[in-house]
Design a protein around this nucleic acid. Structure first.
Length: 438
RNA sequence: GCCCUGGUGGUGUAGCUCGGCCUAUCAUACAGGACUGUCACUCCUGUGACUCGGGUUCAAAUCCCGACCAGGGCGCCA
């Protein structure tokens, strides 16, 4: 490794030490006989100060000629200096340009001149050099670390189900077809059927953090064609309420971790977080319909999923009541997939739920059907073909415990957590209807 | 897929309503110059753009049509 320290490790107490720093030339300011280079690394920015009379001539010339965003290694003496940003500066004895950046730059990594999202995504590597953009992905990493550790601590084991699946048989969302030797196959849209099958394996509690593919031609700030999800499934539940408790623990663990360990990143994004109180409110679908009619004068027909408008209105109502996170439960059975358990009291309803965050759905889940005959009946009722599900159904023939689970879209979670204006902000290299590069 | 809005130097924009005073505004970036404490340094000089195709007109960045691209809303969405 090239010997160096990160800018975050430099402090005025280290005055006089010989240091080596490495990074990108963030800014260059020439004042005749005095030259400032601002060098940016993963931690932040450190000032390199070159008084012409006190640094070697070739070092001064190198610094003067280096283009913005070039990669440099600077060796020199650390100096405590009130006038310098961060209170320290480096007086270089040596500057090496490891990689010279071409100019002009296609966008401005200092963020002085704004760029449109499309331009930013076209030049995403440069865009990611902005501290506030990088902050999103440091937070994403932390949130997923917390999710993984929390679920492991709750007795879940991490699994990996296939990305390549055989049939477009689940119904619902569109699949991307791929060529699999002499056959057609598809990219997985979710681990749904596999995580359920694992409930019959005795693994008992599983989770998967993975990428999924959805071929819908939607084109909104709220949809992607390649997403990352945290999926959980747990067995021996008494009802979907057991699943809701897992979700509450998971969400709180993720937000707590980010709040405690990403204060600098949150500050850069101008976001203040609060760990939500539990339990989150639970509203039934029927309660939501009457609430919307009473408080928002919005009448929805019973039986259909909530519209975008209805979700937003509900979000406003719940916000006024002091809740950003809340469950909507017991959706009409017809609006949910075939494997959803019917409600024990009302056969028109289901043991299902969504978690809403600021008026948007981030989690969807349910108790699942574990009875073989009922499952076959529901597959037929949805107009699907039983034979397409034979390997899935086999898992229900030889002993399947009651179980339930959920899937959470990570990008949606981050978008709402950090108040990002577009879901593409939460993905390094987003895939949408039109974008396949970079 | 439907509806709405837009496309001007590398980047972000003004100008379009009401065609001509546009040899196109401003900022930033870039090149050159002055400057020893900058921190969006300052100052001087310079380079650089009307998405493409067709139409109307004496005259089009500006009006009309089409294509392409982008942004937003809706639908779709485990």
């Amino acid at each position: 490794m090239i010997e160096r320290v990160y800018s975050g490790e430099l402090s005025p107490e280290k005055d006089g030490e010989e240091v080596s720093i490495a990074g990108w030339v963030h800014e260059k300011r020439k004042l005749g006989g005095l030259l400032f280079l601002l060098v940016r690394d993963r931690d932040g920015i450190v000032q390199v100060t070159l008084p012409k009379k006190f640094v070697p001539a070739e070092v001064f010339e190198t610094a003067k000629g280096v283009s913005k965003e070039s990669v440099v290694v600077v060796k020199g003496k650390l100096q405590a200096m009130d006038k310098a940003p961060g209170g320290v500066e480096v007086i270089p004895s040596q500057i090496e340009v490891l990689s010279s950046a071409a100019s002009p730059l296609p966008l401005d990594p200092t963020g002085k001149v704004p760029a449109n999202l499309d331009t930013r995504l076209d030049h995403r590597v440069l865009d990611l050099r902005k501290p506030q953009v990088a902050a999103i992905f440091k937070i994403r990493s932390r949130a997923l670390k917390a999710a993984r550790e929390h679920l492991l601590s709750q007795g879940f084991i991490e699994v990996h189900t296939p990305r390549i699946i055989s049939t477009a048989s689940e119904g619902g969302t569109e699949l991307f077809p791929i060529s699999y030797f002499e056959r057609e196959a598809f990219l997985a849209q979710s681990p749904q059927l596999y995580k359920q099958m694992l409930m019959g394996s005795g693994l008992d509690r599983v989770f998967e953090i993975a990428t999924y593919f959805r071929a819908e031609e939607h084109d909104t700030i709220w949809h992607l064609n390649e997403i990352t999800a945290v999926d959980c499934e747990l067995a021996f539940i008494s009802g979907y309420e057991d699943v809701l408790k897992v979700i509450e623990g998971l969400i709180c663990a993720m937000i707590r971790e980010v709040k405690e360990h990403c204060s600098q990143e949150l500050e850069r994004l101008g976001v203040e977080l609060e760990v939500p109180r539990t339990p989150f409110p639970r509203l039934t679908y029927a309660e939501v319909l009457s609430l919307l009619e009473e408080e928002a004068n919005l009448k929805l027909p019973f039986g259909e999923d909530l519209t975008t408008e209805a979700e937003k209105k509900l979000g406003e109502i719940m916000h006024q009541r002091g809740h950003e996170l809340y469950f909507v439960t017991r959706f009409p059975l017809d609006a949910k997939p075939f494997y959803t358990m019917p409600d024990s009291e009302d056969p028109e309803l289901s043991a299902s739920f969504d978690l809403e965050f600021k008026g948007r759905e981030i989690i969807s889940g349910s108790q699942r059907i574990h009875d073989y005959d009922l499952l076959v009946q529901r597959i037929k009722a949805k107009g699907l073909r039983e034979q397409n599900f034979s390997s899935y159904l086999e898992a229900f023939k030889y002993g399947m415990p009651p179980h339930g689970g959920f899937g959470m879209g990570i990008e949606r979670f981050l978008m709402l957590l950090l108040d990002l204006p577009n879901i593409r902000e939460a993905v390094l290299f987003p895939r949408d209807r039109h974008r396949l590069e970079p």
